[in-house]
Design a protein around this nucleic acid. Structure first.
Lengths: 336, 336
DNA sequence: CTGAAAGCGCTAACAA
DNA sequence: TTGTTAGCGCTTTCAG
């Protein structure tokens, strides 16, 4: 029987099944993008993907166990009809994963009223929906403290992310908090980037241009892409990193480990972020009455040469892995 | 009226719509992976994504115009029940995009009989379905010719891709073809990698280990990830690139431009690949009787320092852009 | 245990 | 024009 069916190549129609069982076995993943279309070989948009990919992978890995499917949409944050796209998307899925909370809280709440919604890497203040995010604050705090305490960098420049990005906000708050704890250190300047390599390059150029009176001791970037842009421009200008100036990122995307000097950054467990968020969504679909919850994942401080560290080729080591601490310190990963 | 509907937050049910209008407005994207689960910080799987992302982006860009949605699945090529996953997926979509033809041709044909299927970056010999791919042959041929003619590299080592990867096969054939045209050059060795950074590292190590009698003049890698692995290991071993040995990749993924020396490679228009494949799929869905067709996209030779070139910071220039030639030559892109 | 029938929520064709 | 109704292809329930 089974054999005959297979032979005929029969596959049940998905919409009919969904309609009948009142479940689609599909979840939607919405990626918000802070992008301006900027044509270039490897453009802004490409790079912003680097951040999402691993999350997507985590989600997919969780989903495949249950034979569910994943619907992906990239939302351009400015455009008007994006909201209607989200609406029609919500009719095709059993639940929604929304990455990067550029969605106003009020919208989130509206969607959450209609179907299960989990925010990924969104604003931890968000109370309307479940949230799964990395612990940006303690990660950023550990990074900045490291710069000040270990490398004695006092004059810090902050390359911030878009105002609408909750992650950037968390990191900014942590930076400010650490500065209040270190009266000897100070913020000598800051500017706002778009999370892209290009905006990092622009920031570095203007820093070099109007930086008469000397460069800061360190540039703290809200993410790795921008730090890469900064590193590239500084390198070309003959500014030595970390001797003349330290540079740090956030996220720990792969290319950061290839640069010379390697990029000191904070590792976000992105794949795990996807897995946890997806698991939570499936839970909520199964049981819609679950109370909203915030899940915060531990980050790792990744010390490479760009902050002034020089461990050479160390075994990847996690200190204080278990227990309370949310920040663990790892040295340069040996790729041998 | 419209306002009232919006106020109530009504969104039509997707499955009911699909069932009624007999169209789902969803296409499926299947990514085949040549992976072995290898846990590491940025593992094999992560890297293989780098290749797909831009394709996904291209597809999504085409889709958003028509308000269709994208269902993504990553298929692990070994596993048994992956085929049944593909089956059930096909019940949820109007058409399928299959990246990387690790799917046996017979399967493709079976699926194509049930619904529109487009192969992306698959085997150009495939006659059962539409195919959209980069012109791997002329790209690889241009690259190898460049190594031999311009840089006088005679003893070539080939780091091949998985036997099941059609792209790798095309590149291999091109390499062999160029060698027959250059009797003075020879293939001094080759090995098979898995398209991952790690397999590139492994290959480089064994090359260093049993390379008694001298290294080859150049290592031609079937893709960028493996070339990156090779570059990393050689660098650590103190082998100078390109002075002691040249290294080349294929694909032109972003990290390759960050390395020192920059990676000479062949640029695949991956985003365009996605767009064209998607456009073709939508055409075929609208008109199922279209005859199968192969669409081959032009590639660019990207010359950076790892092959021996040294243009410094040049403006990106395309020579012979229009017309017949499928390979255009560009110099190192200036990121200023 | 097998087989018929009643929806699932919408669209499209048809009637009024 | 607007209102009604018959499916779309399944699952599930209920009768036989």
């Amino acid at each position: 029987m089974r054999a005959v069916i297979d032979q005929l190549g029969y596959v049940p129609d998905g919409s009919a099944q969904s309609l009948s069982r009142r479940r689609k076995d599909v979840i939607g993943l919405v990626c918000m993008e802070h992008v301006r279309p900027v044509p270039s070989q490897h453009d802004v948009e490409t790079m912003s993907l680097l951040f999402y990919d691993e999350i997507v992978r985590g989600v997919e890995a969780r989903l495949r166990d249950d034979n569910w499917s994943l619907l992906i949409t990239y939302l351009h944050e400015d455009s008007q009809n994006e909201l209607s796209r989200l609406m029609s998307l919500s009719g095709k899925v059993d639940g929604l994963l929304i990455i990067e909370g550029a969605v106003p809280s009020s919208f989130l709440a509206r969607f959450a009223a209609r179907l299960p919604v989990i925010a990924v890497a969104g604003d931890p203040e968000e109370r309307a929906v479940d949230l799964v995010t990395a612990d940006n604050r303690s990660g950023a705090a550990a990074l900045v403290s490291h710069l000040i305490d270990v490398h004695d960098r006092r004059a810090l420049f902050h390359l911030d992310g878009p105002p609408t990005a909750p992650d950037a906000k968390e990191r900014r708050l942590a930076l400010q908090h650490v500065l209040t704890l270190h009266p000897d250190a100070e913020l000598v300047g800051s500017c706002t980037g778009r999370f892209s390599v290009q905006s990092g390059e622009e920031a570095a150029k203007s820093l070099l241009a109007d930086g008469r009176g000397g460069l800061p001791d360190a540039v703290v970037c809200a993410n790795d892409q921008m730090a890469i842009g900064v590193l590239q421009v500084l390198g070309r200008a003959g500014v030595r990193v970390p001797e003349d100036i330290a540079v740090t990122g956030f996220d720990d995307i792969y290319p950061g480990s290839l640069l010379d000097p390697g990029l000191t950054t904070v590792h976000q467990p992105m794949r795990q972020l996807g897995e946890r968020a997806c698991a939570r969504l499936l839970d909520r679909i199964a049981n819609p009455d679950l109370p909203p919850r915030v899940e915060r994942l531990a980050t790792d401080l990744v010390l490479r040469r760009s902050c002034g560290c020089d461990y050479g080729e160390f075994e990847r080591a996690r200190l204080a892995e278990r227990g309370r601490p949310r920040v663990t310190v790892i040295t340069q990963a040996a790729r041998s």
